[in-house]
Amino acid sequence: IRCIGVSNRDFVEGMSGGTWVDVVLEHGGCVTVMAQDKPTVDIELVTTTVSNMAEVRSYCYEASISDMASDSRCPTQGEAYLDKQSDTQYVCKRTLVDRGWGNGCGLFGKGSLVTCAKFTCSKKMTGKSIQPENLEYRIMLSVHGSQHSGMIVNDTGYETDENRAKVEVTPNSPRAEATLGGFGSLGLDCEPRTGLDFSDLYYLTMNNKHWLVHKEWFHDIPLPWHAGADTGTPHWNNKEALVEFKDAHAKRQTVVVLGSQEGAVHTALAGALEAEMDGAKGKLFSGHLKCRLKMDKLRLKGVSYSLCTAAFTFTKVPAETLHGTVTVEVQYAGTDGPCKIPVQMAVDMQTLTPVGRLITANPVITESTENSKMMLELDPPFGDSYIVIGVGDKKITHHWHRSGSTIGKAFEATVRGAKRMAVLGDTAWDFGSVGGVFNSLGKGIHQIFGAAFKSLFGGMSWFSQILIGTLLVWLGLNTKNGSISLTCLALGGVMIFLSTAVSA
């Protein structure tokens, strides 16, 4: 259960009878995928790494000078000259100064003066180019299975845990398959586009800190620079940016070097996208990844198990997540596992009318040892309800109150669905055939309105939902006002479609 501690969480529900669903994975976010007769899966884009970055340009932001020398000439005696002028490691300046009897010249006039100092770069920052084909995306998957609280967001041991898996995709191999043991396998067909235009970005490294910066900004930095990788004795261009020549006297000129420019660069980098280094690879934390999940090989585990009949206890007080759902960790005293956990939410304890829904599909106890633990997640209705676990006299209950409203949740879900469709863009549509167009249209309606429909009408039977949709269509056909007619027709059509397409 990876997503319960992530604030940016998206719930995606598969269409009834569908074998695939489109998701948008982004750094700092987590996606929970639910479908009829399929286990619930949490998917998170953990890291995006980039390798084989080529150094484009380096800037010196802290330097020192040494070996200063000057040469001067009297008027009419030609130009002052130093051998160091031809050495690229030196920074030199030529000027004219007033000369006369007082400073060793027989004539009054302008004399030539040249001053040089050896330039040494102490600290530099480097910009590297990123090729999209060198990106690698690491995705962690977790099935809502027989897990306890100690396994949440624990990325170790996934090789031997059938509840978890790690997959890596690249532009050259965008397809992967996550093996989930008894739950089958989940196929991923990803489109490795981060949403960032790397043709316009460089990877900047300064003092063990890293950013993504725009090329134009990078090339306009007014500091000494050299092109390409460091060859040991780089040729620094624009050395004068960190060196200041003071007022010249008759035979000498003082040279000083400016202080470190790291603070000024940090100020200019305010708002830039931060990154990290992992050995020789860069780690990015921006952008998104679009994936199509193929769920035809994914299956529920323990459908044929019998119900657990022994007593359950709450190991922890049920807690609310950031998303309005409830996490419950229970301990089973029996030894008759594997068995299914009898769990439901009810409005009252007399009729036990089921409300809400299970995020953890078909929760089971897989071990036959005593005191096995299991964590599950529920989506309670707004208002008061009861969490009921167990059967008969051994069942345990917990009162729950959820604040908020169904309308607010439906609106929030619609906005999130619209954002998801905007990110998917043209990849969500198939114009290759008439059937493809209608299929894409259905998927689009489901992406945007599916979660809201589930919130508003999830407790009704599909037949009642179709009746309401048919009534809206009838009202649309018999209303003389054009805008009201079109609105009723659209709402009725969407409702009829979703009542037959969205899983219960």
Rank of each mutant, 00 (worst) to 15 (best):
286 S>D: 01
319 A>G: 01
172 N>Y: 15
81 Y>L: 15
107 L>I: 03
218 F>K: 09
383 G>S: 01
252 R>W: 06
344 Q>M: 13
484 I>P: 02
302 G>A: 01
48 T>N: 06
356 G>M: 08
494 V>H: 11
382 F>N: 07
312 F>L: 10
311 A>R: 08
199 S>L: 07
102 G>I: 03
311 A>Y: 15
119 F>C: 08
402 R>Y: 11
124 K>D: 02
183 F>R: 05
90 Y>S: 08
438 F>D: 00
31 V>F: 08
94 R>I: 04
491 L>Q: 08
211 W>F: 13
359 I>A: 10
438 F>M: 09
389 I>K: 09
57 R>Y: 06
61 Y>A: 02
254 T>G: 00
389 I>S: 05
185 S>K: 01
215 K>L: 00
94 R>P: 00
333 A>P: 05
19 T>F: 08
64 S>W: 03
399 H>Y: 06
114 V>K: 03
357 R>W: 12
356 G>Q: 04
80 A>T: 08
493 G>T: 01
52 N>I: 06
264 A>I: 09
467 L>K: 04
378 L>E: 07
210 H>Y: 15
57 R>Q: 05
417 G>T: 09
56 V>K: 07
451 A>G: 03
157 G>Y: 02
119 F>L: 11
304 S>N: 00
303 V>T: 14
287 G>T: 15
228 G>N: 13
301 K>A: 01
441 L>Y: 12
156 T>Y: 01
139 I>W: 09
169 V>L: 15
200 D>Y: 10
84 K>L: 07
43 I>N: 07
197 D>F: 08
32 T>V: 01
152 I>K: 01
189 D>M: 10
174 P>Q: 04
392 G>R: 14
233 T>P: 13
307 L>T: 09
203 Y>E: 11
236 W>P: 02
87 D>V: 05
77 Q>F: 06
334 G>C: 04
463 F>G: 09
494 V>G: 00
349 M>S: 14
309 T>V: 13
389 I>D: 09
500 T>I: 07
258 L>C: 10
433 S>T: 15
75 P>S: 12
195 G>S: 15
473 V>I: 15
59 Y>N: 10
407 I>H: 05
4 I>K: 06
110 K>M: 10
423 V>Q: 14
210 H>K: 02
229 A>M: 08
13 E>C: 08
320 E>S: 12
465 Q>S: 08
115 T>S: 15
77 Q>S: 08
343 V>S: 00
45 L>C: 09
38 K>M: 13
270 A>N: 13
327 T>L: 02
490 A>F: 14
321 T>Q: 06
43 I>S: 01
246 K>R: 14
382 F>Q: 11
74 C>S: 08
155 D>P: 01
242 L>M: 14
400 W>C: 13
224 P>Q: 08
166 K>N: 10
451 A>T: 14
220 D>Q: 10
230 D>F: 14
226 H>C: 15
85 Q>H: 11
473 V>F: 11
372 S>A: 15
112 S>V: 14
235 H>F: 07
407 I>G: 02
6 V>Q: 03
366 T>H: 08
97 V>C: 08
279 G>Q: 12
340 K>H: 08
338 P>R: 00
473 V>P: 01
93 K>G: 14
58 S>I: 03
313 T>V: 15
163 N>Q: 12
211 W>C: 09
168 E>R: 00
96 L>N: 08
81 Y>C: 07
193 R>T: 15
415 V>L: 15
287 G>P: 00
87 D>R: 03
412 E>K: 13
30 C>V: 03
145 G>Q: 09
299 R>F: 06
491 L>I: 14
191 E>H: 08
318 P>L: 12
456 L>C: 08
407 I>R: 01
471 L>I: 12
367 E>M: 06
15 M>N: 06
374 M>E: 01
277 M>V: 09
54 A>F: 04
142 S>Y: 03
167 V>P: 02
366 T>W: 01
292 R>P: 00
309 T>R: 15
486 L>V: 15
62 E>V: 09
478 N>L: 00
115 T>K: 09
282 G>T: 01
376 L>G: 01
249 H>L: 08
470 T>L: 10
152 I>T: 12
179 T>F: 14
112 S>R: 00
315 T>H: 01
150 G>R: 02
330 V>A: 13
395 K>L: 15
179 T>H: 10
31 V>W: 07
435 G>E: 05
200 D>E: 15
15 M>E: 04
450 G>E: 06
314 F>I: 10
64 S>Q: 11
147 Q>K: 13
102 G>T: 02
68 M>R: 02
386 Y>D: 04
30 C>N: 07
501 A>E: 08
461 S>T: 14
503 S>C: 07
112 S>M: 06
60 C>W: 06
465 Q>E: 11
213 V>H: 08
322 L>Y: 11
307 L>P: 13
330 V>F: 08
497 F>M: 12
150 G>M: 12
192 P>F: 04
382 F>W: 08
445 I>K: 10
186 L>Y: 03
35 A>S: 15
155 D>C: 01
484 I>C: 11
89 Q>E: 15
479 T>I: 07
478 N>H: 14
457 F>C: 11
26 E>M: 10
32 T>C: 03
321 T>F: 07
357 R>F: 08
243 V>F: 08
419 K>D: 09
317 V>E: 13
92 C>E: 10
480 K>I: 03
454 K>S: 10
467 L>H: 11
280 A>L: 13
420 R>T: 09
242 L>Y: 07
471 L>A: 08
492 G>F: 02
499 S>K: 12
45 L>F: 05
348 D>F: 00
197 D>S: 04
358 L>A: 10
82 L>Y: 03
348 D>N: 14
412 E>T: 08
271 G>K: 10
18 G>A: 15
375 M>K: 03
454 K>D: 11
481 N>C: 08
388 V>C: 15
1 I>V: 15
122 S>K: 01
284 L>M: 13
13 E>L: 04
278 D>L: 11
20 W>H: 05
159 E>T: 08
242 L>Q: 05
72 S>K: 05
42 D>Q: 05
338 P>F: 07
167 V>M: 09
285 F>R: 01
501 A>Q: 09
317 V>R: 00
247 D>Q: 14
210 H>C: 02
85 Q>R: 07
17 G>L: 01
